[in-house]
């Protein structure tokens, strides 16, 4: 081959090379796309039940409702109010999540009328005795992880991309998470959580996605299984409502005291 032909061949190859993304780039692209299809919902309210099952299938149920507000370029704000069991009715939890610094969290103890700022470094701690930890219910932000595309795969009968997420924030209980992103609706269908010893700890399934507000997919059920203890927690969602016109003042300490 003569020299000009070699140059020509090299020039032809450049665009091909630039399209061959690395697994990291592809993973990041999928995560960004997944986040972007869920941008712009502004705020929402919902009611949910938390069903805890032990390894023998014995169940306990909790009911709660929440409100959330989307914050662009930072984590979301949310308030969760407990409805049952009745001894914790009126207890409320305020969370301001952040991308690159610890979340701010407050708890309202209704019988004492006391608001308590609590430590948010319990990311791996159990949320209300469930199999969900605080970091599992925190909003998904792209910058909180390193991303890597692993393979194509199936979850719940759907075609998915499988992406590895490695938490970059402090105090995570996980070395990595594998997420199955649906190729059509770009929402997570399944997550596998690996504990600090890198052994498979939990699996979360998102079931019964429905479209709200013409654009936004929300699941009817989020089912978490702890493989190491055999315990399960299901979150059963209902009455999603969008367009509540919330402002930041609906997510401050005064709003927490009024929340019911």
């Amino acid at each position: 081959m003569n020299k000009p032909a070699l140059v020509l061949a090299a020039l032809l190859l450049i665009p091909l090379l630039s399209f061959a993304e690395t697994a990291q780039e592809k993973g990041l692209r999928i995560s960004k796309k997944s986040k972007s299809v869920d941008v712009g919902w502004k705020d929402q309210t919902a009611i949910y039940k938390m069903v805890l099952s032990d390894r023998y299938g014995r169940k306990t149920t909790r009911a709660m409702h929440n409100r959330q507000m989307e914050i662009r370029n930072d984590g979301d704000k949310s308030i969760i109010v407990f409805d049952t069991p009745r001894d914790i009715k009126g207890t409320a939890f305020l969370s301001h999540t952040h991308i690159n610094k610890p979340d701010d969290q407050w708890l309202y103890l209704k019988s004492l009328r006391r608001v308590k700022r609590i430590s948010s470094n319990n990311k791996s701690g159990s949320f209300m005795g469930s199999e969900f930890s605080y970091e599992d219910i925190s909003s998904f932000e792209v910058d909180k992880y390193k991303h890597k595309f692993l393979r194509d795969g199936k979850a719940d009968g759907r075609d998915c991309y499988v992406v590895e997420l490695i938490p970059t924030y402090n105090y995570s209980g996980y070395t990595k998470q594998l997420v199955w992103i649906d190729k059509k609706i770009w929402r997570p269908i399944k997550m596998d959580y690996y504990d600090r010893k890198d052994s498979h700890l939990k699996t979360l399934m998102f079931l019964g996605y429905k479209k709200y507000f013409k654009t936004f997919y929300r699941p009817d059920e989020m089912k978490m299984i702890n493989h190491q203890t055999g315990k399960k927690t299901s979150l059963l969602w209902s009455e999603y409502k969008f367009g509540n016109n919330f402002t930041k003042s609906d997510f401050d300490v005064n709003a927490l005291k009024r929340a019911r």
């Binding site: 610890p102 701010d104 700022r117 609590i118 430590s119 948010s120 470094n121 319990n122 105090y171």
Partner: peptide
């Protein structure tokens, strides 16, 4: 006054 620093209040 409360300072919330990591696991410390």
């Amino acid at each position: 006054l409360q300072a919330t620093i990591g696991k410390w209040l």
